[in-house]
Amino acid sequence: MIIDSRPGAALSHCRTRGLQTPDPLSQLLARRDWLMADGATGTNLFNMGLTPNEAPELWNSRHPDRVRRLYRDAVDSGADLFLTNTFGGNASRLGLRKAADQVRDLNRAGAALAREVADAAGRKVIVAGNIGPTGEIMAPVGSLSHARAVEMFHEQADALKEGGADVLWVETIGCDREFRAAAEAARLADMPWCGMMSFDTAGRTIMGVTSAQLSALVERLPNPPVAYGANCGVGAADLLRTVRDFVASGNERPIIAKGNAGVPRLEGGHLHYDGTPAIMADYACLARDSGVRIIGGCCGTTPAHLRAMREALESRAPGPRPSLEEIAERLGGFSSLGDGF
């Protein structure tokens, strides 16, 4: 089924979870031309004192007030949608910290804290239950079976649902098989979901998937995502070049862009991103004018970036679809000569 991305169309097309009414994200998309998502989780938690050897998800139980602050900062900066602090909350990744037995508790807690903040916002704000990659390589290249991947994603999805997430937010996926496993887990959890891949190798994911292949994949799934797109990668310019390919696919499904705040550089043992709030404001408007419906930031994106993005989206009139030359000029150029080859 093809979902029309025009405002209002989601109400007539979406029947996620077998209900007679659309899910909360589709409802909001039906009323708005664009939505703003949040910024970085890791960057902002590091700024609050998270250390490199800590799993961010453990803060959901150890430092709930700091996690609430992360969420509130996003809402106060204008986000219509924010992610739970659960990106690495699957059994494989938490197992590296000897916390695999805490998957349900940590994901449920992360979503419950988010639900609390969203409900107190005074406006409609979507809680997106964040699910990142397992950290393992899928068979036949690696040893992770489809069944085990589905099992891990499903455990996480159920806990996020219990905690009050409105939608599952699957991101930074590099493998089409892992994307399929996450989609199956969302179906088993009876939850609407969004899916993103990270295109960081000349327009391909780490496992070689192109933007065109992702656009085709989402339409073949038995439970396609509410929206799909790209996050992270090597910079905002490259991400928008990938977005142009999604638009060109013609599938009309709402598109997500969640680009990094520039390119990182190592200074004094810490990563710093060169994307200023002004640059991210340009990125947000270029994304909107490219046809993106959900616009946010990834690594390096702070509340200051989000405030600039929101102000620009609200104050600058929509323009024509930007060319690659305009994107490169305003955002600092591309990291490779081509996208997907």
Rank of each mutant, 00 (worst) to 15 (best):
L50G: 10
I131P: 04
H154D: 10
G78C: 03
L106R: 03
G39R: 00
E171D: 14
W169R: 00
G163W: 05
T43E: 05
V150I: 13
D158P: 00
L106F: 09
R104K: 12
L35H: 08
L81S: 02
L81G: 07
A30S: 15
A157D: 01
N85V: 10
S61K: 11
N44R: 13
G78I: 02
R108I: 01
G49Y: 06
N53F: 10
P64Y: 08
A79C: 03
V170S: 00
Q156C: 07
A114K: 05
L81M: 14
G122D: 08
T134E: 02
D105A: 15
P64N: 06
D158W: 00
R108E: 15
L29C: 09
A55N: 12
L160P: 12
R31M: 00
K98H: 14
G42L: 13
A37S: 13
T41G: 02
E136K: 11
N130Q: 02
A147Y: 01
L168Y: 03
A139W: 06
R69K: 14
D166W: 07
S143Y: 09
R62C: 03
A114E: 05
E171C: 10
F82N: 04
G122I: 07
D101M: 02
L96K: 13
G110E: 07
N44Q: 14
N85I: 06
W59S: 10
S77A: 15
R148T: 13
P52L: 10
Y71W: 03
M36W: 05
D105G: 06
W59P: 08
D33N: 13
L96A: 13
R93A: 13
R115C: 08
N85H: 11
N47I: 00
F46P: 01
F46D: 03
P56R: 04
A40N: 07
D80A: 12
S145H: 09
E162G: 00
A147K: 11
H63C: 10
D65L: 13
D76R: 10
V167T: 09
N130H: 02
F46N: 05
R104V: 14
L168C: 05
I137V: 15
K98E: 14
R31Y: 00
